[in-house]
Write a protein that binds this DNA or RNA. Structure first.
Lengths: 136, 136
DNA sequence: CTAGAAGTTGGAGCGCGCTCGAACGCAAGC
DNA sequence: GCTTGCGTTCGAGCGCGCTCCAACTTCTAG
């Protein structure tokens, strides 16, 4: 059996992670991580001399943030815009703030809509329960 | 000018609606309505002698329900299962109830997740606001 | 040094949920 | 009866967000 579990060299020594470990931690596939990088969502991932990616703590933080945006329904195009502004530095802080606020409000609306629809589903469920009652 | 606004014949006389009007009311496109029907999500839409669809009140109710399922994130495949069971009649009530409950719980989890993520976004926003404050 | 696991790139492919185009039929106001 | 627009079918195409493949390189335990 080959010893391949992530051990000292990969995880502890230099605090930087190989793509497989990042995949495991984020739940993204290695393919998706590379895809995001190519799409400009992530940049400046350090490489070894041989060209192998090594993710640093900062990369992980940014990824976690991207995942929040994604999981709240932001499109890749919008995340690209945000990432682009981030690259532009401090000058874009106001823009980014506006984008985030707009997105948060959009998510709020979505939550409200889901709650409303779920209440209607509850009614439907109650109706089905009555049907079942009557059947017995 | 051709008089094409939905008038007596289309909307009032027989309480059944042409596809364009259904599209207008549901927000779906006529293409999507036909696609849903072909996919087995909707059936028994009455036709004129010439083969033109006329949606009845019952069709509209079912469509509204489908839209709730869709808007809460149910896949077309799952809606197909539900529609299939509905076709099977009363025997499938228990199954349908189970499906609906599961879906509602799934939506609840989604809502909770969104709220959690949105709280994190709020923190990020607050952080950006501080940044902007400090800049001035 | 070597074997085998893990990583790399570029590009093709896929599943989902529509959306559109072509070519044709029906329906209603003049 | 004719025109004009709404409707029909079938099948192809599309945008999104990945996902997979081939061919090759790098890394690491033994």
């Amino acid at each position: 059996m080959t010893m391949t579990s992530p051990s000292a060299s990969a995880l502890v020594e230099d605090e930087t992670l190989p793509i497989a470990e990042v995949a495991r931690r984020t739940g993204l596939s290695a393919d998706t991580l590379r895809y995001y990088e190519k799409a400009g969502l992530i940049d400046s991932v350090r490489r070894t001399a041989g060209g192998v990616r090594r993710y640093a703590a900062g990369d992980m933080d940014w990824l976690a943030f991207l995942l929040r945006l994604r999981d709240t329904g932001m499109s890749i195009a919008d995340m690209q815009r945000f990432a682009e502004q981030r690259r532009e530095g401090d000058a874009s802080v106001a823009e980014r703030l506006a984008l985030l606020r707009e997105h948060r409000d959009c998510v709020d609306r979505r939550i409200r809509s889901l709650r409303e629809n779920n209440r209607a589903l509850d009614n439907k469920i109650a109706h089905y329960e009555e049907l079942l009652e009557g059947e017995r």
